[in-house]
């Protein structure tokens, strides 16, 4: 029997990596100015988040993108922990937070993440499964043109925020109502993704009317 298949069972989350549990039962924080954003990971899928206003409980999913960089979705929020440099970024309902990761015995050595236009002129297709992909052209700061399979050439323009996590790695937050009939679930309208241009791999999450959908994939450069 031919076991190779087109991944119909999963859709755009076909290539999603296995969940990562490195943070299981650990406590971490991202410290930014006066606010400390604390995370207590209680097991493999629950965490307590506290930004000084009392603890909130969330389900979480964690995917790892490289040796020491983690993408954590909790509710409709995202945290990125870059443990080698000891820095992190948060995407919360009211915006971004950047800071140092508060971890015992290890000082921050990386630059604090920040909004960037370094990705301008980059044109890339991210393959999320068999015949499931999306393309992005970061044409100018704050904007990107995007298209989703199967309509390869049907690009539309959307607001994009890009954050530099470290050299070659960027967190992107693009609000884009993905057209019906594309490979993404109907009603999807926001993608937050961590893109590694060293190895050309990505992890992220698609948000919208459906439950958040974690994704992984590989990249190929395209000619715009």
């Amino acid at each position: 029997m031919n076991h190779a298949n087109n991944g119909a069972k999963y859709g755009i989350d076909q290539y999603r990596f296995a969940h990562n549990y490195d943070f299981k039962d650990k406590t971490l924080a991202i410290a930014s100015d006066a606010i400390k954003h604390s995370f207590r990971f209680a097991g493999k899928n629950k965490l307590e988040y506290d930004a000084g206003k009392g603890s909130e409980s969330f389900d979480y999913e964690c995917l790892k993108l490289d040796v020491d960089t983690y993408f954590v979705r909790f509710g409709t929020n995202v945290a990125v922990f870059e443990m080698t440099g000891g820095v992190g970024a948060l995407v919360l309902a009211d915006g971004f937070v950047f800071g140092a990761v508060d971890q015992a015995g290890q000082a921050q050595s990386g630059a604090i993440p920040c909004l960037t236009d370094e990705m301008t002129d980059t044109a890339v297709t991210w393959v999320l499964g068999c015949d499931k992909f999306f393309s992005r052209i970061y044409a100018e700061a704050g904007l990107c043109r995007a298209a989703w399979a199967p309509a390869k050439a049907d690009f539309a323009e959307y607001p994009a925020k890009c954050v530099k996590i470290k050299e070659g790695m960027f967190l992107t937050d693009v609000t884009e109502p993905i057209p019906d009939g594309s490979c993404a679930p109907a009603g999807s309208d926001r993608i937050i993704a961590l893109e590694d241009y060293e190895r050309m791999m990505l992890v992220g999450c698609v948000f919208g009317k459906n439950p958040p959908l974690m994704i992984s994939g590989y990249g190929e450069f395209i000619v715009p």
């Binding site: 990705m119 890339v124 241009y197 060293e198 590989y218």
Partner: peptide
């Protein structure tokens, strides 16, 4: 254009999962 990012040379290990 991050196509020009000075990445390392890889063989079969580029898409190694973390």
């Amino acid at each position: 254009n991050l196509k020009d990012y000075p990445r390392k040379k890889y063989s079969i290990n580029q898409f190694t999962q973390p």
